[in-house]
C-alpha cells in the first residue's frame, strides 16, 4: 500500500507513547521506514527532507546506540542535529528541568529527542516548551521508537505482525522496551507472552493483554519470535534474582530450548546484551535465528520515518 492510499495524514507532532498511535499511523511509519531502509542501503543516503529544521538530542541518561541512531537519522534527512549531553551539564549545576527546557526552547530548535530517567519527562518538556518531542526512553515507562523498530523488523520478515505469537523474556519490571512493545503489539493484534521470575514482573501484568509464564519451556511453545531483555541493573535496588547463572539456567535462551518454538523462530534483543545471562552467545550470533543486527539497522530507518513525519506536521502547522 502506498501513502496516497491512506487518504489520511500522519497527525502527531509528538511521539511520547505508543498509545498515541493507531494502526494506520503505524502503517504510515512502517511504509516510510521501508523506504528509508532501502535508501540507507545505497551509497546515496542523504536527503533534504528535514533541511532547515533543527533536531536537538537531549540525553539525560547515557546512551550510545539510541543517540547515535537518532543522530544518523536526523543527519541523513538533512536536519541540523545538535547533541546535548545533559548528564554533564546544567542539570548537575542545580537548574530545574523546567528552566533547562525554557532555555533550550529559546534556541528555537524544532524537534527535541529526549531520554530521561524519569517517567513523563518527555511530556513534561513538550508541555513546557511547545516543541515537538520524541521520547527516546523515559525511566521505566516507554521507549516507543524501540517498539516500532522491533515490530518493523518482524514485519520485514512476516509482512504482518498481527496473529503471530511473540514472547518477551527477562526483566519486564524495569523495562520501558517491554512496556512499549506490549502496547504496540496489542495494537497490531499479536499474541503476547511474557516470561520472567515473579520478582521481575509488574503487579497484575496479566491484565495488560498478555499471557504470563514463569517456565520458559512452556512459554516458548509455538512462538514465532522471542525477545530477550537484559536485567536493568541501573534501575534495581537490591537483588531481584539470586545470580546471573541461575537466571540463565531458568530463563536464558539457547538453541535447544528454541526447539519448542515455531521452526522459523526469530530471536531479538534490544541491546545492550549480556551474553550468558539472558542469551547464549552462539544463539545471539546465529544468522539463521538472530535478527539483533537487523533491529539496529531498522532503528535508523524507523527513526528517519518518525522524524520525517513529525517534520511534515511542523511544516504544515507553520504554513497554516
Amino acid at each position: 500500500m502506498t501513502r496516497a492510499a491512506f487518504s489520511y495524514d500522519f497527525p502527531h507532532r509528538h511521539l511520547v507513547s505508543v498509545a498515541d498511535l493507531n494502526p494506520v499511523d503505524i502503517r504510515i511509519i512502517f511504509e516510510r521506514a521501508a523506504h528509508w531502509l532501502a535508501v540507507n542501503r545505497t551509497p546515496d543516503k542523504s536527503s533534504g527532507v528535514l533541511q532547515g529544521l533543527t533536531v536537538l538530542n537531549l540525553f539525560f541518561e547515557a546512551s550510545t546506540r539510541t543517540q547515535g541512531s537518532f543522530e544518523m537519522a536526523g543527519k541523513r534527512l538533512g536536519a541540523d542535529v545538535v547533541n546535548f549531553a545533559m548528564a554533564s551539564s546544567s542539570a548537575s549545576k542545580g537548574e530545574s528541568l523546567s528552566d533547562t527546557a525554557r532555555t533550550l526552547a529559546a534556541m528555537r530548535p524544532d524537534i527535541m529527542v529526549v531520554r530521561h530517567s524519569a517517567t513523563g519527562a518527555p511530556k513534561f518538556l513538550a508541555d513546557r516548551t511547545g516543541l515537538a518531542v520524541v521520547n527516546a526512553g523515559d525511566g521505566m515507562h516507554e521507549h516507543p521508537t524501540q517498539a516500532l523498530l522491533d515490530s518493523f523488523t518482524l514485519a520485514q520478515h512476516w509482512g504482518e505482525v498481527g496473529g503471530k505469537r511473540i514472547l518477551i523474556v527477562g526483566d519486564i519490571l524495569h523495562s520501558r522496551v517491554a512496556r512499549s512493545n506490549i502496547g504496540l503489539l496489542n495494537i497490531l493484534g499479536a499474541e503476547i507472552r511474557l516470561c520472567a521470575p515473579p520478582t521481575l514482573l509488574p503487579p497484575d501484568v496479566d491484565q495488560w493483554g498478555c499471557d504470563v509464564f514463569h517456565d520458559l519451556d512452556d512459554a516458548l511453545t509455538g512462538c514465532d519470535a522471542v525477545m530477550a531483555l537484559r536485567q536493568q541493573k541501573e534501575r534495581m535496588s537490591g537483588g531481584f534474582v539470586p545470580s546471573g547463572r541461575e537466571f540463565f539456567h531458568l530463563f536464558g535462551l539457547t538453541h535447544e530450548r528454541l526447539e519448542a518454538c515455531s521452526p522459523d523462530v526469530l530471536v531479538m534483543h534490544p541491546g545492550p546484551m549480556n551474553r550468558g545471562t539472558e542469551i547464549h552467545t552462539k544463539l545471539a550470533d546465529d544468522p539463521e535465528r538472530s535478527v539483533i543486527l537487523e533491529q539496529v539497522e531498522s532503528g535508523v530507518a524507523v527513526r528517519m520515518a518518525v522524524l520525517e513525519l513529525i517534520g511534515g506536521v511542523i511544516r504544515k502547522e507553520a504554513g497554516a
Partner: peptide
Amino acid sequence: PYDDKGEPFAL
C-alpha cells in the same frame, strides 16, 4: 521552591 515544582512527576 518552584511553583511548578521544576521537575517531572517522579523527581
